[in-house]
Nucleic acid binder design. Structure first.
Lengths: 195, 195, 195, 195
DNA sequence: CATGAATGAGATTTCATTCAT
DNA sequence: GATGAATGAAATCTCATTCAT
């Protein structure tokens, strides 16, 4: 008797997930080009061949990981696409930003390492730009609505602050006092807007 | 007639500089592991063999680049090692931080890509930690002297802000409004300390 | 209820035929070494595993195809093994030669591609030589009986003509004017023997 | 002192020639897909790596061999491109055809094995068609000028004869009585045109 | 009878490094 | 000082074959 379709499907899905998870961690820690397919297979406890049953190439494996990641991001970052942010939603956005990173710092570490390289992947570049635009647009409107004299500058300030904190967090998730930083930033803006 | 010793020496130094410069740019843009010695040699207009006359290995070439870079950093970041910062010196420090990055964004791009990777180089890790400590120490003392209630949090806030701005700048040096950002940060702290 | 033995047998035979037919076409068009078992299975709409239920190996599959083919050839080429050809039988032989090819040009294309290769299969070499000898023997006797001054040369001439026409036909079965060529050759010999 | 440019050039050319020659023989005897780069390198007494210094890929090596071969063919087959053949030139053409094959039967064996496969190379297909057209055009005009009632059929007859003889020759260059066959064909046409 | 997940040997290709000149 | 031909180890990828179900 052959395995049922369900059995096969679940085997496949588990293995694919296992491979992606293993590869993601290695890519993030050791770099994409410094991670051999051999190493991924060994760490995942499978053969090289099996990896190629599920992914056409090492590059396509990366793409697949990145795609998952992008899907996740959109869900979180632009839930209703209305582009309007109240002050409370703004604080919530800050909270959420850190929470999302904290949920999967490895993803973001990989994202960060890829986004810096000119040649690696166009996919990343595209999504990166889209994402930035999406978030930036919302932010811009928000700062304007808060009667900031220089909304663009305010946005750069805010995005620097957030990005810097995130970078430091993903570099050392265990030692960075994320909660504290989150509150510090929120307090900072509460103070600012109170005036 | 043969070249004089001086001529040889200057040829050596020029070539070494050329190789480092070329390698630095490639490493930063395409990644260390994705840059072949062949590519470096070709782009520098020399032979692979000559590169190995000056550098023991590809790894040692990277180390050499990183060493230069570290030397530069120390000169800039810890001029007198006294660890005491006046308010004016603090503003000057912000200015200087951006200026140093602007002087050689490629260096910093490389630094950023290396520092994220677990395995690449221990040297980098060491220096990275030392550097952080050095800067953090000075900053911590400064914020304490400015009577901040939470100097550590203040420091994290400040370093996030700076790091975020720098990351965004080195990702796109041509489009990031560096001057504006610099002034924005300085103004922010001037306002803060005035109160 | 379970399948009857008859049903199973007929399923077996159909599947075996399907696999052979599919493999034959792929081997002929893309080459034996360039055709993967995967590709055969996919094109036949079955699993790799099933293919291995019926054939021990890829090589044995090829052998099996070639064996069928050889059986066919013998039936056609040496019906009574008497080695004597009348003039009418000679014309009939020409007709038959083309007809046999036309019945299964793919078989002959495969045969042609295999027979050229030193290493592929000894089986083929053997049968190829036997076949040649068989046909050549009959031909030789025929040309002698027709009082040709140089029966061996005549035979080479004839076999070249036939082989060349066949090669051109199997290379492009759709555009080669087979009927015309057949008649041309027959007419040629009718004219020749009339004199 | 580095090698002079001449020295390097000659080393390069010799090695390229050696690799092509070795590969050609293996491709022709064992088939393109059945010949590993390893095998070529070993037989040529060099490393795999060196082969890739000179050829981008195994496929490009094949293309390169085929290109040389095509160049040779054009030189021989269409010397003045005028497309007019006298009767003497026709006999000379037959002679020349066999001579060219005899000069490098391995080339033609390879050509023959490639031309039969649908997928292998478009290059071959193109040149094959061009060559056929070129030769066929000249032949067609010739048979017309010789007042044949069916020049196209005559051409097919002639090309079958020639192709068949060539195929048999390249399959077994040592045992095929090429001179005899050549004369037989020439005599055949002399007789035919005399009438 | 039938499936396709899984393997591992081997194929193609890359690349840091050496070395003769 | 300078070249690039040459190597070999390791990387990516393919594929015939096995096997649990």
């Amino acid at each position: 008797m052959p395995r049922t379709l369900e059995q096969n499907k679940s085997i496949r899905e588990e293995k694919i997930e296992l491979i992606k998870e293993t590869a993601l961690n290695l890519f993030a820690d050791e770099g994409y080009h410094n991670t051999s397919v051999q190493k991924i297979a060994k760490q995942a406890g499978i053969s090289k061949g099996l990896l190629y049953n599920y992914f056409e190439s090492k590059e396509q494996l990366l793409e697949s990981i990145v795609n998952d990641f992008i899907t996740d991001m959109y869900v979180h970052f632009d839930p209703n696409h209305d582009g309007v942010l109240s002050e409370d939603e703004f604080y919530y956005f800050i909270e959420k930003s850190f929470d999302i990173i904290a949920e999967n710092p490895v993803h973001w570490k990989l994202y960060n390492s890829l986004v810096m390289q000119k040649t690696v992947l166009e996919i990343i570049q595209d999504i990166s730009i889209k994402l930035s635009k999406s978030v930036f647009g919302v932010m811009f409107n928000f700062f304007k609505s808060e009667r900031c004299t220089d909304p663009e500058g305010e946005m750069l300030f805010f995005s620097s602050l957030l990005k810097g904190a995130i970078i430091q967090y993903i570099a050392a998730p265990d030692s960075f006092p994320m909660e504290m930083m989150k509150n510090k930033i929120i307090d900072f803006y509460k103070n600012k807007f109170k005036i």
